[in-house]
């Protein structure tokens, strides 16, 4: 019997402020939503929601009729030239700044983009995995600018909040994730949010294809089919 392929149409995991579980990060959320500061710098470990929040900022700006752009600097194949002309946006979001610092061309491009953007009175939102002080920036002019605006650290969620976030995400996808199933996943899988969300997406697709609910036996069977950790 052939497995049914899941339909291409399903609810997208749109990143907004509403579907972000704050759990201790409320001040950061408030700052991102309401701050009129020219630059805000956000840092935290992988899976703390940096990308989600930047995209939410973009969403909000667009909804308010402002022009926004989002650049994931860790993505391979990008080039410093893509910062040219970016000052025309009311809001520029740069994700994973730590991926490009240390490279002289990127640093010069960032420095000039920063100057043009602030001269135009537009806003910059940055993220990295470390604080500005700990960033390995070679160009001192850039280094001092990155730490000029308010800096916020995103705290990792505790296990209860992680489970809640997972269930909330499942709910948004139209899937019910029972407490026991969520608990089961938390006990057996990497507990960072990126891995957990990826796993959820994979499970969702697998359950759609198999036309089965997300139960412990189903999850056990699915995990058993995957190459070991």
């Amino acid at each position: 019997m052939s497995r049914q392929l899941p339909l291409g149409i399903r609810l997208r995991d749109a990143a907004t402020f509403e579907n972000f579980l704050a759990a201790g990060n409320e001040p950061v959320l408030a700052a991102l939503q309401h701050s009129s500061e020219v630059s805000l710098y956000l840092w935290g470990a992988a899976g703390t929601g940096k990308t989600h929040l930047l995209q939410a900022v973009c969403h909000q700006a667009t909804a308010q009729g402002r022009r926004a752009a989002y650049l994931p600097l860790a993505e391979p194949g990008l080039h410093p030239a893509m910062l040219e002309g970016m000052e025309q946006f009311d809001l520029l979001c740069l994700d994973d700044v730590d991926a490009v610092v240390g490279d002289p061309d990127w640093e010069a491009a960032l420095f000039h983009a920063y100057n043009r953007l602030t001269a135009a009175g537009h806003q910059l939102r940055l993220t990295a995995s470390v604080s500005p002080a700990a960033l390995a920036v070679e160009l001192p002019d850039l280094h001092s600018r990155l730490g000029w605006g308010p800096v916020f650290q995103l705290q990792s969620l505790n296990d209860t909040a992680k489970r809640q976030a997972l269930q909330q995400r499942a709910g948004a996808r139209g899937v019910t994730l029972d407490d026991e199933v969520a608990e089961y996943l938390m006990k057996r899988c990497p507990r960072d949010m990126v891995s957990l969300f990826q796993l959820l997406e994979a499970l969702d697709e697998a359950s759609l294809a198999a036309q089965r609910r997300l139960t412990i036996p189903f999850v056990r069977e699915y995990l058993g089919r995957q190459p070991g950790p």
Partner: peptide
């Protein structure tokens, strides 16, 4: 993906 849309189409 949200990433593609925000990075390349939104601007």
């Amino acid at each position: 993906t949200a990433q593609q849309f925000n990075t390349w189409i939104r601007p």
